[in-house]
Design a binder for these strands. Structure first.
Length: 668
DNA sequence: GTAGGGTTAG
């Protein structure tokens, strides 16, 4: 017996009511009605598609438990099991089709969306423009731009929403160029963009910042139409400039907005955060609250990210206190940046605490924790955490394996590293350049230089400068001049502008006393116009970050700093420190070399910290390049003499100096 | 029916 039209309308009204319900009692009634509707259609009591249900509490579970895949399969069967059963849906009206499509879109259910699309093609609504736009949007949001574009092509009538939906689809799926390509065609078809179209185009333009000309043209267009001060378009516009790194323009657009909202504030804060201007971002954070805008997850993750990049533990803690006070749950997005912030600021214990309290840790949360362990040289903990991740069924990704391989390399775990590299296949993770670099590093550090070279020749991609650079680093470590020179040659061919390999090669020759070859490298470096990045170190004391460059004479406490270092230097020499001058300038005598070494930025930062912090407290220093061999040696002795923990973060990793030794085991 | 802001590696 088929359901009658009247019966259908009756049930439909009740189902619609159910959609509006969200509390437990009504939800139960809705569930009964859903079952009733489908049992009367002949599908048994549990056969209703989850799209009918909108409990508002556990949508994903609803969908998975009574999933639409199973239910649409059931829809294909008639009561006696012979027919298609799909005729039931012929009674569906336009709103319900739209509702289903929107549910598929929200939940990114491409397969189910296709089924509804197929049904619509056989219905009276196949040529309905609104329905077609909704289908197009469903494909775009589900990430199938091929289907979205096909849909766009077959639509006989296209309005502004059609064009905007496709443009937005490309923009949101990181295909900004396609989005920007469509815009002139839209104009040629006589359609004018609205605020939806323009904000998508600006987003596309901000993500393709190779040439900001297009962005400026769009800005001019927005200005001409009077959209530049609109909160949606203006926020996208300021975000675009912020992505170009042009904060003056971004700030000026922000100030010109007719009205602001959280998104405008967040876009500006994120802009300053990306530039590493933490102080500015924090000032804006305070200002937005003074103007009664509530910080959101977006605000907090930008702030934690900038604290992580500058290693500002105290400021990061202050923002963390704000999150706690605001009473919000620590969602993964914010929690992940917080884990990263604590790990990068040198406090791995706090990172662990936050990680343990995350409500639903995702793969990025695990990766952040793994990265933390790896950067702190905690090889064993990294591998244990990784095994735990696999045990509870989190699918590792390319970043996960990179963390694990880096940890193995830093901890000298050769066999484990090779095992995890092989394991990538099992988890369908394709190795990319960074994995190959790490494997060369792993083999090279372990002294297996020939195997590392063979590995490079066997990989399925053309070796890059970074890959040869890793071999060069290993050759320097193990003093293999010939292979090192060969690797350096490959690096110079592929990337002649990076100063790093020149310095590595120079140091390799200098530390072996081969000064003629070292002089040759300096000459080459000069000829190719490559400049060494000036070294600087930072230390955070009482919420203020102090920066030091080598031989810094500008600091107000310079005299005290020098005296402190001389005092400490005398003490460490008494217990065995001998300056390692092998890496210092050519053609200067031993005494001059020692003087040059004395005022390396990390030593100045350390002396400053010793002057301005209480005895026994941990000292945290950050450096923009790798720590030099002599400073590493000196800081080990200092940690013993002053009886304090000194944590140094360089470009590669953390060094925890305690009682005369370093956590890296002199292996960095 | 269409829009803008945030995370992990190197």
């Amino acid at each position: 017996m088929d359901i009658s039209y009247i019966e259908y309308v009756y049930l439909y009204i009740h189902i619609k009511k159910r959609i509006l319900c969200s509390n437990g009692l009504k939800s139960r009634r809705g569930s009964i009605l859903k079952s009733l509707a489908f049992s009367r259609c002949g599908f048994g009591s549990s056969a209703a598609p989850a799209v009918f249900m909108d409990s508002g509490t556990s949508e994903q579970e609803d969908w998975d438990a009574n999933g639409v895949i199973r239910d649409t399969t059931l829809l294909r069967k008639s009561r006696d099991g012979s027919g298609t059963g799909l005729h039931v849906m012929d009674f569906v009206d336009r709103d319900l089709y739209n509702h289903w499509l929107k549910r598929c879109t929200q939940m990114r259910k491409l397969r189910e969306g296709r089924i509804f699309h197929a049904r619509i093609l056989n219905s009276q609504f196949r040529d309905d423009l609104v329905i077609q736009n909704t289908i197009l949007n469903m494909y775009a949001k589900c990430g199938s731009l091929v289907d979205a574009h096909k849909m766009f092509d077959v639509m006989p009538l296209k309005d502004m929403v059609t064009w905007t939906t496709l443009i937005t689809g490309y923009s949101q799926n990181d295909q900004g160029q396609e989005a920007l390509f469509l815009f002139p065609w839209m104009l040629r078809h006589g359609l004018k963009p609205n605020q939806f179209t323009l904000s998508s185009l600006l987003k596309a333009s901000g993500n393709a910042p190779i040439n900001d000309k297009q962005g400026r043209q769009l800005h001019a267009y927005c200005f001409k139409c009077g959209y530049d001060t609109n909160v949606y378009v203006g926020s996208s516009l300021l975000d675009m400039y912020a992505r170009y790194g042009r904060m003056v323009e971004a700030q000026s657009i922000f100030e010109g907005l007719v009205s602001k909202n959280e998104v405008s504030w967040n876009a500006l804060i994120a802009g300053y955060a990306r530039k590493g201007e933490g102080e500015h971002a924090l000032r804006l954070f305070c200002e937005m609250q003074r103007e009664y805008f509530k910080p959101t997850h977006f605000t907090y993750s930008s702030l934690f990210a900038v604290c992580a990049s500058t290693g500002s533990l105290e400021q990061g803690k202050w923002v963390h206190a704000h999150v706690i006070k605001s009473g919000g749950r620590l969602v993964a997005f914010v929690g992940n940046t917080l884990v990263d912030m604590y790990a990068k600021s040198g406090s791995i214990e706090d990172a662990e605490k936050v990680f343990d309290r995350l409500v639903k840790p995702d793969v990025v949360s695990w990766n952040s924790m793994l990265t933390g362990y790896a950067q702190h040289g905690l090889g064993k903990e990294t591998l244990e955490q990784f095994e735990e991740m696999l045990r509870i069924g989190i699918q590792p990704n390319d970043v996960t394996f990179l963390c694990v391989l880096t940890a193995c390399s830093h901890a000298g775990l050769l066999d484990e590293g090779q095992h995890y590299f092989e394991l990538m296949k099992k988890y369908n993770v394709e190795p990319d350049v960074s994995h190959y670099v790490t494997m060369v590093d792993l083999l090279g550090r372990a002294g297996l230089l020939d195997r590392a070279e063979r590995f490079i020749r066997e990989i399925p991609i053309e070796p890059t400068a970074a890959i040869w650079g890793a071999l060069l680093g290993a050759c320097k470590m193990h003093k293999n001049m010939e292979l090192g020179a060969y690797a350096a040659k490959r690096v110079f061919e592929l990337d002649p502008h990076d100063s790093g390999p020149y310095i590595l090669l120079y140091n390799m020759y200098a530390s072996a006393g081969r000064w003629n070859e070292a002089a040759e490298v300096r000459k080459m470096m000069k000829e190719s116009g490559v400049k060494k990045e000036p070294a600087c170190s930072w230390v955070e004391i009482e919420n203020a970050v102090h920066m030091f460059i080598a031989n810094d004479d500008a600091h107000p406490q310079r005299e005290e700093i020098r005296k402190m270092w001389e005092k400490i230097s005398g003490k460490i020499k008494e217990i065995g420190y001998v300056p390692d001058t092998s890496h210092v300038l050519l053609f200067v005598d031993q005494q001059e070399r020692e003087v040059k070494l004395q005022y390396h930025s990390e030593k100045l930062a350390l002396a400053f910290a010793l002057l301005n912090t209480s005895p026994g407290s941990t000292i945290r220093i950050k450096k923009n390049i790798r720590v030099c061999g002599d400073c590493h040696l000196a800081i080990k002795y200092v940690s013993k003499v002053v009886g304090r923990e000194i944590i140094l973060r360089d470009t590669n990793r953390f060094h925890h100096f305690r009682d005369g030794s370093c956590s890296c085991g002199d292996y960095w």
